[in-house]
Computed example of a mutant assay.
Amino acid sequence: MTTLSVALGARSYDVHIEAGLLHRAGTMLAPLATGRPMPIVTDSNLADHLASLRRSFDAAGIATDVLVLPPGEGSKSWATLERVTDWLLDRGVERGDHVVALGGGVIGDLVGFACAILKRGCRFVQIPTTLLAQVDSSVGGKTAINARAGKNLIGAFHQPSIVLIDPETLDTLPARQVRAGYAEVVKYGLIDDADFFTWCEGNGPALIDGDITARADAIARSVAAKARIVAQDEEERSGMRALLNLGHTFGHALEAEAGFSDRLLHGEGVAAGMALAFAYSAERGLCPPSDSARVAAHLRSVGLPDGLKAAGITATGDVLAGHMRHDKKMEGGTLPFLLARGIGRTYLDRRVDLADVAAFLDRQPR
């Protein structure tokens, strides 16, 4: 087992990574049991993983209650949040209890936010089952639901008590979901670890094809990178944590244009967004064009979109910039952008003109 710590003082917690860990989750979580049934929130795609988890709880003598939700971004809504909180209140959940989030980023974000606001804060456990959630959204405490105006606009910082990651849960994921999650792996190399990006170029295809060693290595390196950044800037005050948003400003605009639907998965939007961020950086003379081309080539090589055309987005630059104006990072009418001076050299630029971004987007192939 690989164990990594997210160092946040009194809110510190461990992330455990091991193949087969789902089958031992009951033993791992037994110290958190209170004698009342432990609530589990999951989605209807995860029946097999839920059955394994409940068997491990039964073996540890922990009773469970389960709420099964519809899969997909549509569940990150006010209506589903109300359903989850009412369900937890009906079961008498107390502030010292732990709620288990079993699923991908949608379940983790939704359950984490429900726990952040329920009785002004109860505890929760992340058991992420998608690559995207394992390398990114399950760690760091960002929780949220979507709004009509955009993605993740209603939320709170609320750290889990523990994160259990079993790379074997990825074996049941559709290949498209694995590729989408892999975009977040690539992100860590592009932020500040050029050697890791080189590792991705050599090992990414094997990871996507199911190599358990490559998957475990990528998860551990990604979590370690995120834990380091979160420990320095938990609530994105200094700008350090903002580096984790590489590709997301462009990507969220593409997702919004796609209606936050399966037409464009979050990781696919991030992939296209990272390629656009590097292309924009290269166009402005910040980044070597060869680095921008290298990023796009790697994304294409693993089946991820490298721009608007590959993402199926035909909207004008003004329309996409309009989506960006709803970004939660907007401050004083200015939207900070993650740009790059090269692979592994990402930085936060607060002086980007959205009109210039719109014009850049209009020049991109569709």
Rank of each mutant, 00 (worst) to 15 (best):
G322K: 07
R24A: 04
A60V: 06
W87Q: 01
T80F: 08
L244F: 06
V302Y: 07
D65R: 15
A293W: 01
V178G: 05
G312A: 01
E234D: 03
Y280A: 14
R221Q: 15
A25P: 06
E82K: 12
V68N: 11
R345Y: 07
E94F: 01
T213V: 14
I154R: 13
D171L: 13
L53Y: 07
A214T: 04
N152G: 06
V99F: 05
I229W: 00
R120N: 01
R55Y: 09
T316K: 01
H252Q: 01
L32A: 01
D362M: 05
I162E: 13
K119P: 09
A133K: 07
L246K: 03
L320T: 00
I127T: 07
V135K: 04
P31D: 04
A175Q: 15
L348Y: 06
D195A: 15
L170A: 15
V230W: 01
A256I: 11
I107Y: 08
D192C: 14
S222K: 00
T3I: 14
E283C: 08
W87A: 11
I229K: 04
L320C: 05
V178P: 09
S281F: 11
A321M: 03
D136W: 03
K329H: 01
D262A: 14
V223F: 00
G155D: 10
F250L: 04
G140F: 05
L286Q: 07
A279M: 10
S238V: 11
G269P: 04
V6K: 09
V230I: 10
D90G: 15
C200I: 00
Y188M: 07
Q134R: 02
G155Q: 12
L21H: 00
S75Y: 08
C115E: 05
I62Q: 13
R36L: 12
P289L: 03
R179K: 13
A206G: 15
K119Q: 13
A242P: 00
W87L: 00
D211Y: 06
M330D: 06
S301T: 11
L276D: 05
A277D: 11
C122M: 13
E235Y: 09
K76N: 00
L53Q: 14
R300P: 08
A133R: 11
P71M: 12
A206N: 09
Y280E: 13
R350I: 11
D97R: 10
Y188C: 12
F360W: 04
L286C: 02
D217P: 09
L29F: 03
H98Y: 12
F57G: 10
A224F: 04
C200N: 09
L335C: 08
H252F: 05
I40H: 02
S138F: 08
A214Y: 08
D349F: 09
I343H: 05
N45E: 14
G20Y: 05
P288K: 04
P336I: 10
A133N: 08
R176T: 13
G267C: 00
T27K: 13
H266D: 02
L264D: 13
G273Y: 03
G285K: 06
D136M: 00
D48E: 14
A253S: 11
D193Y: 08
G202Q: 15
L361Y: 08
V185P: 01
A231E: 08
A256Q: 15
K76C: 06
R341W: 01
G26Q: 08
G251K: 05
G181C: 00
E94M: 11
G204N: 02
K187L: 07
D136S: 03
I343E: 03
M28F: 10
V84Y: 08
T334F: 15
F278R: 07
S44L: 10
S138E: 07
Y280N: 06
L110K: 10
L29Y: 02
